[in-house]
Computed example of a mutant assay.
Amino acid sequence: MKVISTESSQILAARLATALNTGMVDVKFSRFPDGELYLAAGELDDETVIVGSVTGSDALVQLLLLIDACEGSENHLVIPYMGYARQDKKFKNGEPISARAIARLFKDNVADCITVNIHEPDVLKYFGVPTKNISVGKDVGAYIQTLHLKNPLILAPDDGAMAFAEGVAAVGGWDCDHLEKTRLSGVEVKMAPKKLSAASRPVVIVDDIISTGGTIATAAYMLYQQGATDVYAACVHGVLIGGAFVHLKAGGIRDVFCCDTVERGCSRISAAKSIAAALKG
């Protein structure tokens, strides 16, 4: 078995190869003069783990090209972050089900697939091969333990993210809650933990994805007003568009950290061991 990856997942793929105690396939990436993507894979094995996050259109095309280049091998596909997964239903006539359209692409030359904390688990039914979604909540919790926070409150941004937050909190036996919005007027909204108090304790807001960071920045401001000593932001997929990292730091977030499913400077948590465990079955 060897591990091969697209440009968007090089670091995670290398860590995964180490976790699996196996080698990697070298890949040369370039473009044709007209801008089309080109790649050439090195020596393949009979069994290959293909790793590629769908962080944009080029990353998607590169992943499809890589799958095709691995023809003749038994290929296990790992999609650490799957873009286009948010729209899993039609909201109005004429819209595509984007998640379905993308998932259907991964059926040829693929034996099975692993996703990591996919935004909408219902998307798995659209894949044409056996697919399982794993959570790295324990890995996020393990990193929070290294911060040595005293009596932290693990906080989900909404009820929908509560299951993930509970998985994170279980690692340290910490308190867990979710934010609840209360409309005070036509223009004023209050956000606070639904059941527990943030006063005199550090708070870690955890979610599967941080995109713009707007909700977290607003929540941090209100949590400080409610007496929180520090507010941290943690996620699996640090998409961080539109200057989100700076926006969060400027808004008072003590630190921002995420996994290497989307490779960023703040990707201090690796999904490699959890993915390796899933591959070993």
Rank of each mutant, 00 (worst) to 15 (best):
Ser73Val: 07
Glu74Gln: 15
Leu77Gly: 03
Leu77Met: 04
Val78Ser: 01
Ile79Asn: 03
Pro80Gln: 10
Pro80Gly: 07
Ala85Cys: 12
Lys92Tyr: 14
Ile97Asp: 02
Ala103Glu: 01
Arg104Ile: 09
Leu105Ala: 06
Lys107Ala: 13
Lys107Gly: 14
Asp108Gly: 09
Asn109Glu: 11
Asn109Thr: 02
Val110Leu: 01
Ala111Phe: 14
Cys113Asp: 05
Val116Pro: 00
Ile118Ala: 01
His119Gln: 08
Pro121Met: 05
Asp122Trp: 07
Leu124Cys: 06
Gly128Ser: 03
Thr131Ala: 06
Lys132Arg: 14
Asn133Ser: 11
Ser135Gln: 05
Val136Asn: 02
Val136His: 01
Val136Trp: 03
Val140Trp: 05
Val140Cys: 07
Ala142Ser: 13
Tyr143Met: 11
Tyr143Cys: 08
Thr146Ala: 00
Lys150His: 13
Asn151Glu: 15
Leu153His: 11
Ile154Arg: 00
Ala156Met: 08
Pro157Arg: 04
Ala161Asp: 11
Met162Glu: 08
Ala163His: 13
Phe164Met: 13
Phe164Glu: 09
Phe164Tyr: 15
Ala165Phe: 02
Ala165Lys: 00
Gly167Val: 11
Gly167Ala: 10
Val168Cys: 06
Ala169Asn: 02
Val171Ser: 03
Gly173Val: 13
Cys176Lys: 00
Asp177Met: 10
Asp177Trp: 07
His178Gly: 11
Arg183Gly: 04
Val187Ala: 12
Glu188Ser: 00
Pro193Ala: 08
Lys194Asp: 12
Lys195Phe: 13
Ala198Trp: 03
Ala198Gln: 12
Ala199Tyr: 10
